[in-house]
Amino acid sequence: MPRRALDNPIVLAVLGLLLEQSSHPHQMLAELRKRSDNHAALITRGTLYNTVAALAEAGWVVSEGRQRSGNRPERTVYALTQAGHAELVRRLDSQIRNPEREFSQFLGAVTYLGALGPSGAVEALTERARCLRQRTSADEERLSDALAAGVPRLHVIEAEYALCLARAEMTWIASAIDDIRTGSLIWPVAATTNPATQHH
């Protein structure tokens, strides 16, 4: 199994799930997709099974046997080993301590915001802010319901963090829109010129 399989971001998520309870990959996939929109978009069945195989080869998880549910095929159940627990703690400690520069699609798009022109940028940013407000409102409600139902705050701390990031992004978007409209964010002529209309 290639070493790079152990560098996959979902390794931490899988180790974390197995810290909670032993599980088979099909169960892990369903749980990861339920917990995170990012995981739902990024994790395929093949990726997860390859990752679990790499974790087993590294000695971080171990098979506890096979389990059958109804008429479904038998599935191998995995448990976290002592070495896997130590690796989980090591990765968590490192990732929390060290603020890496994480490149998002939005950051990449903002880099070339000038290509949209002032009115196009305002329109796109306004729509993003609207979508963020809707999503944030729904996430706030889910978090509130979870806490009201007695879920320990520590178990939903990542939801708090995600909401904090979304609110900060909405604040920045509102500021950027205002700067465009007041003219304090200036578009150079070159940034608004369509290359197809230029004559060489």
Rank of each mutant, 00 (worst) to 15 (best):
L17F: 10
A121M: 03
I96T: 12
I43S: 07
R66M: 07
H39F: 03
V14G: 03
A166V: 06
A159E: 07
T76A: 02
M28T: 02
S63E: 08
R142D: 10
Q27G: 02
T51I: 03
R181D: 09
S137E: 07
V151S: 01
C164Q: 12
E169Q: 13
T76D: 00
E158T: 15
R3A: 14
G120Q: 13
P188M: 02
R45T: 14
K34N: 14
P99S: 09
A166I: 08
E141M: 06
Q105L: 14
R91W: 00
L18Y: 08
R90E: 10
R90A: 12
V62K: 15
I180R: 01
L48V: 03
A176W: 09
T171M: 11
Q105Y: 08
A30D: 15
W172Q: 13
A41F: 03
Y112A: 13
A86G: 02
L143M: 11
A109Q: 11
S63A: 11
I186H: 06
I173H: 07
T81Y: 13
S137G: 04
R130M: 13
V89F: 05
R167E: 12
I96Y: 10
E140F: 09
I177Q: 08
G150P: 05
L55R: 14
V122G: 03
E127T: 15
P152N: 04
V14W: 07
V11P: 06
R153W: 01
L107T: 01
E169N: 02
A13W: 07
I173R: 04
G183H: 05
A109K: 03
M1H: 05
M28V: 08
D37P: 01
T193H: 10
E169T: 11
Q134L: 08
R128D: 11
I173T: 09
P118H: 08
R133H: 04
P25Q: 00
P73C: 15
G114T: 01
R167T: 12
V62M: 10
N98E: 12
E102T: 15
T44F: 00
P99E: 09
R33I: 13
S63K: 05
E57D: 08
P188C: 03
C131N: 06
G120I: 11
S184T: 12
L12S: 02
A53H: 05
